[in-house]
Each structure stands twice: as structure tokens, then as C-alpha cells.
Design a protein around this nucleic acid. Structure first.
Lengths: 116, 116
DNA sequence: CCCGATATGCAACCAAAGGTTGCATATCGG
DNA sequence: CCGATATGCAACCTTTGGTTGCATATCGGG
């Protein structure tokens, strides 16, 4: 079951640029649109839009500091996003294992029939 | 470190409709664009486009069967995608723990300074 | 064998999202 | 006070997800 909020979280971290931005903010601490854009293949304005998206879903918080605006990751919300990721991952993983188990069962049955 | 192929995998499973499609294919076995669209809030044509995207990154395979075309999940590729998910998840998780540990260390130092 | 029903595929068209450039505004610092 | 720097806002372009309409192909009963 997926809620609208969860889908928002997913699409927020689904963008590769936004994932890299989160990486940079986690690795280097709080940063600005300008400082992030220096390490990304897109312009400051594009970064700014991505930050707005991340802010809207609560993955980052911002605070004005003079003429700059500092952004930092909301750790609780990111932890929640990580939980979403691993939830989908484990769900698919379980399905794959179940399918494999069934396939093996069928294989065994087929061998039995041939043996009769 | 992310490669172009990995980004393709990510963006493929980043779309909520495509994630649901994979869920449906895993739960119900092989299906067609028409059968999937009956359980999704989008038209058959939209589903068809999504299937083309999933096919292009190798997450599903298709085979014509009379007037139908059956799609099924490529288990190995999906397993790889799941690995990508959990890799990013654990990386962020590790960063979060490290940040928390550093914060606690700073807190301890501050208390020590006050004690001097 | 033929014809209606069903499953696809292809094309045109629309709206939202990601990206860019250009310009206006605000703050820092000598 | 003034130049340099950091943002914010707006217009515009391209890609992507979604739709409708139409043509094509196959299945099956009469």
C-alpha cells in the first residue's frame, strides 16, 4: 500500500540530481544553492528548483543567513525515505524468492512424474 | 558512485505507476498491457509506454502470443535494481549515523569545556 | 470461410517537470 | 557609497507521462 505522501517522497528521491544533492548535503554539511551547483552539472536555478521540491516534501530545511540561504537535510524525514526504499526492496525481494521457490517445487514435481 | 545504467534503472523504478506495474507482474505472473491497465488508473496506451521503458532497461521481457503480447519481470535485473535501492539506503543510513555520532561527540566536548 | 470482437501499434496532441537564460533585488565589505 | 556576490522571479524550451483517434492483426462462432 502506498500513500500520496510516500509517492511524493519517492519521486523526490527518484531524481538523480536530487539524490546527489542529498549526498552532498550529508557529506559536506549545510550548503547553499550556489555551493551545490558548483558540484553539479546543472545551473544554480535548476538546483534551486530541486531544493524547493525537497523542501516541500520535508527532506531539507532552509534558513536565511545574510544574503545566503542555507539548506540542510532533515534527518528524520530522510530516515523515513530510506525506510520506504528498503520496504519496496524487501517486498520485491520476498516476491522473487517466493517465485523461485515455486519454480523449484514445479521442477521437483516434474521430475517425480517422469519417475513414475 | 552512480553509473548511467544505474541511473536508468533508478528512473525506471522511480515512477509510481511503473513500480505498481512491477508489483502486479510479480503478484499475478505474466500479463499484457490491457490486463495491467485494468488495474491501473491510466489508459492502456500509457501502460504500453511504461512497458516500453521497463523493457528498454531490461526490467521486463515480452513475447508475442497470438494477438496478445505477454510481459514478465526479468528477475535478475529486478534483483539488481533492488540492490541499487538498498545500496543508496544503507549509504544514507551510514551517513546519518556518522552525523549523529559526531554530534554526540561535540556535545560531550562542550560539557567537558564547561566542566573546566 | 467470413465477420464481429478483441488486442496491439502508431501518430497527433496536451500538460507537467526539469533546465536554461536574463534581469531585478538584497546584502556584504572595503 | 559602490562594486561584488547570492538570491529570487519570469519567460521560454525540451522531455516525459498521459490522452484520444485510427489502423492493423488475430481469434472464433455461425
Amino acid at each position: 500500500m502506498s500513500t500520496a505522501v510516500d509517492d511524493d517522497l519517492w519521486s523526490a528521491i527518484g531524481d538523480p540530481v536530487r539524490r546527489t544533492m542529498i549526498d552532498l548535503l550529508l557529506a559536506g554539511g549545510p550548503g547553499t544553492a550556489t555551493s551545490l551547483s558548483e558540484r553539479l552539472p546543472v545551473t544554480r536555478q535548476a538546483v534551486s528548483k530541486h531544493l524547493a521540491v525537497l523542501d516541500r516534501v520535508g527532506l531539507v530545511h532552509s534558513a536565511p543567513a545574510g544574503r545566503e540561504r542555507h539548506y540542510q537535510v532533515d534527518q528524520a524525514q530522510l530516515a523515513r525515505a530510506v525506510a520506504q526504499l528498503s520496504a519496496v526492496g524487501t517486498a520485491w525481494d520476498a516476491r522473487l524468492r517466493r517465485i523461485k521457490r515455486i519454480a523449484e517445487a514445479i521442477e521437483r514435481d516434474r521430475n517425480n512424474d517422469q519417475g513414475e
